[in-house]
Amino acid sequence: MRQLYALIQKENLIFFSGWGLLLLGASYIVLSMFLNFFIGGFFVLDNKNLYSYFSFQNVVFILIIPAITMRSWAEERKFGTIEFLLTQPISLAKLVMAKYLSCCSSVAFLLFLSFPLWIYCNVYYQTDNLNIISSYIGCFLMGAAFCAIGSAISAICTSSAIAYISTSTILFILSFMDFSKILYNLKLQQATYSRLQNSLNLDYHFYDFITGQISFDNFAYFILLSCLGIWLTIRILEYKKG
């Protein structure tokens, strides 16, 4: 536990010491609020669940989270510090988990920046706070899954820029891909077809959260996606050793 904590602390120290965090926070707030006020129709909608804000979080995360994860492994490789990390008496799984948890803490920080909006809504509107909490949980789980995928891509790349572009592209495909065309060719029964289509779609699970319909499969989807990303990162690092 002490090793894991030291690694997370190191990651955060490096990330939070420069301008990185400030720039990231500012970009997140500007982008989120722009989409919320100008496209989401914050003042037009009945905003009891902050739908105008949360409904664009998947788009915002596709642009912001790769900036958090791109440096995870790509920069360690670029500066040679990966040799230091991989020759320490610590398991690969712990190293990967530490970087993943550090990225997740950045996601939590970004979401925390939107709290004033929640407070504002509580003062001026009749809000459905349980629905808002469910939306925050959904956003965090989606962000965590994106972090795991971004971390795996960063483990392949030596350049942060390439890691950013590749992660954004993959997250975009994962979020907006229409699985119906692939599944249609499998000639499945209608019920199985629509069930499978919904299960695979990231947006479908995310929208369940922001509309307050939390269910086990939504949690399982994002947790499994995170596990897959973490597992892939470990495998990639092991492969690169050989």
């Binding site: 190191k10 120290l13 490096i14 010491s17 420069g18 500066f79 040679g80 510090t81 040799e83």
Partner: peptide
């Protein structure tokens, strides 16, 4: 070659 974390 440099294995130090320059920001620390």
């Amino acid at each position: 070659n440099g294995f130090l974390y320059f920001d620390m």
